[in-house]
């Protein structure tokens, strides 16, 4: 497997757009050719070579190409855009739109990742060891086509609107999330292992959400169905018990929302509907 290492030459001040950083663009190219790939520094067109010190050698195919980014790329947007295979490892924090329209391969971020991770993602895997911003897997404004396939795992906390307009795939947040996880989701699965700030599944039409931690309340347009012992995600069983709700009924939705019984004593009043 070929390995290419990118190191920022300076600390970036203005936003950088570097959608060319993908195994697909690097595979089979010389260092010189990779250095010549286009990027944007604010309003100036530039090249990867101007921005990064580039060493190593890529593989012949995307699958055989691993890109390692050393240093802080918090201002760099669109890394891994449309990648189909191979691997990107970011040994720091990364900017917005990581893995936009990604189709395959794997991206790992050792630090934090900014908003719109995996926007309109169609496959592959993104793993963030730190925290994530808002709108994981969401499309751009006004669009209804969110993440379709693939897996996103956040080890830290995530912001608002995790899995907005999601159409498939899996998102796992090991920490806490902000408001509106699974808003407008149609299909797919979201697992939140920590607490959620609220409004889970707002306007969802389908799909599954599970929260293992605390939720302040359930939206009034969800109806309580039952208590279930466990929740299944990617073949793995996660122990409950869970309060299970269906919604969003305002949207004639049939999404399933699972909320830990143990961590949500304030929802006990729903149990009266069990009789």
């Amino acid at each position: 497997m070929g390995e290419i290492i990118l190191k920022p030459k300076v600390a970036f001040k203005v936003p950088i757009i570097a959608e060319t950083i993908t195994p697909d663009n690097f595979a089979g190219k010389s260092i010189k050719e990779i250095e010549d790939l286009e990027a944007w520094e604010g309003n100036r067109k530039t090249t990867l070579g101007e921005l990064f010190e580039i060493t190593g050698a890529p593989g012949e195919t995307p699958k055989d190409t691993k890109i390692i980014i050393e240093g802080d790329v918090k201002k760099v947007k669109k890394i891994g855009c449309k990648m189909t295979d191979g691997e990107i490892i970011i040994k720091g924090s990364v900017g917005m739109y990581l893995g936009e329209e990604m189709k395959g391969g794997k991206i790992t971020v050792e630090g934090d990742a900014d908003s719109w991770i995996g926007t309109r993602m169609k496959g592959g895997q993104i793993e963030v060891k730190g925290n994530a911003g808002d709108y994981i897997g969401a499309p751009y404004r006004g669009d209804t086509k969110g993440m379709k396939k693939g897996t996103i795992i956040i080890h830290g906390n995530a912001g608002n609107e995790v899995g907005c307009w999601m159409r498939g795939g899996t998102i796992i947040v090991k920490g806490n999330t902000g408001l509106f996880p699974g808003i407008h989701m149609k299909k797919g699965t979201i697992l939140i292992e920590g607490d959620c700030a609220g409004r889970c599944g707002a306007m969802m039409k389908g799909g599954k959400i599970a929260v293992l931690g605390y939720v302040p309340s359930i939206l009034p347009s969800f109806t309580f169905e039952e208590i279930k012992k466990s929740f299944k995600i990617k073949g793995e069983k996660i122990k409950g018990p869970f309060y299970v709700f269906t919604g969003d009924l305002n949207e004639n939705g049939a999404g399933r929302l699972h909320v830990s019984v143990e961590k949500n004593k304030h929802l006990q009043f729903y149990e009266k509907f069990l009789e």
Partner: peptide, 8 residues
């Protein structure tokens, strides 16, 4: 205004 998704 209604349709940013139409433009981008």
């Amino acid at each position: 205004i209604l349709r940013p998704e139409d433009h981008y």
